[in-house]
Each structure stands twice: as C-alpha cells, then as structure tokens.
C-alpha cells in the first residue's frame, strides 16, 4: 500500500508488514495500525513506528538491547496471552525515544517498550512492573555507564 510518512515522504509498504495495536499506544488509543520503518544508517537500531492513519504521527524507536545488553522485559501472563506467545523471549522489543535538542539530552522509555510478535504482526505497548526501568533514561548515560564498568 501507498503510505504518507512523517520522515520518508511517500513510500510503498507491503500490507502484510502492518502491525496491529489493538489497544493503540498510551495516549494514542485510537491509533491501531503502524508500520515499523528503519532509518537508513541506523543498522537496525534506529527505527520509527509510523502511523498508517496519520502521516504526521511517528514515534522514534530504538533497539533497547543495543543500549542495554542485559535488558530483560517480562510481560504479565495476560499480556503474553494477548500477544499470543508463551514467553516474553518470543517477542521483539522496541523502546520509544523522546528526541531532544540538544540531541544528547534525548531519552528512551525502557519501562514502556513496544512488544511485537513478528509472526502475527500483533503489537502492544506495555508498562513493565519489574526490572526497575524508567520512562526517561538519558541516552547519553548509556555510553558513560559502559565506560565506568570497563
């Protein structure tokens, strides 16, 4: 299908790659369909969830595991059932990013990742209860932490 996007102009997107968020995203409950599109040069770690219905609505997303290799999101049994899997490990996870100026002050939301079932195209945003993750992790902190442990 032909899609008007916030970042990539008009592009073609295969209908079967459309992700279905039956509950929308928090604060955007009416937005049920998104495409996950990678930014060129991001090596799969920088992407965006582009709304299928609203061209100007897109959420910048990152691969949380590339930021925090030991990131371990665990969904509740009810969430797993809604996602049609038995274990959280069967899902892909993406963290939404608040892009700030200057860009080093940008934050990622590791507490509310978007979980995607690659097999079915089902997706949902969750609020993790465990793990001590926050909604505003400073992006610039990740590099520093790694340096500290080296």
């Amino acid at each position: 299908m032909r899609l008007s996007t916030k970042y990539f102009g008009e592009i073609d997107c295969p209908e079967e790659e459309k992700l279905c968020f039956s509950e929308g995203l928090f604060g955007f409950e009416e937005e049920k369909e998104f495409f996950l599109l990678p930014f060129e040069g991001g090596e799969g770690s920088l992407l965006c969830f582009q709304s299928a219905a609203t061209p100007q609505l897109a959420f910048v997303a990152m691969n949380p595991f590339s930021l925090m290799p030991d990131y371990a999101p665990v969904l509740t049994p009810g969430e797993l059932k809604a996602m049609e899997v038995e274990r959280s490990e069967e899902l892909c996870f993406y963290a939404l990013c608040v892009v700030r100026n200057p860009v080093g002050e940008s934050t990622v939301n590791l507490r509310c990742p978007v979980a995607v079932n690659d097999r079915t195209g089902r997706a949902m945003q969750v609020i993790l209860g465990e793990g001590g993750y926050h909604m505003h992790h400073l992006l610039s902190d990740f590099g520093r932490k790694e340096e500290a442990t080296c």
Binding site: Y7, F28, F39, G41, G42, L46, C48, L57, A58, F59, V60, M62, L96, C97, V98, V99, R100, N101, P102, V103, S106, N109, L139
Partner: peptide, 11 residues
C-alpha cells in the same frame, strides 16, 4: 516522543 525537537537522524 511524538513531538521531537530535532531530526531523529541526529541520533
């Protein structure tokens, strides 16, 4: 997150 301040490409 829906209202970014600079281009995400800067990330």
């Amino acid at each position: 997150a829906a209202d970014e301040e600079v281009s995400p490409l800067e990330l």
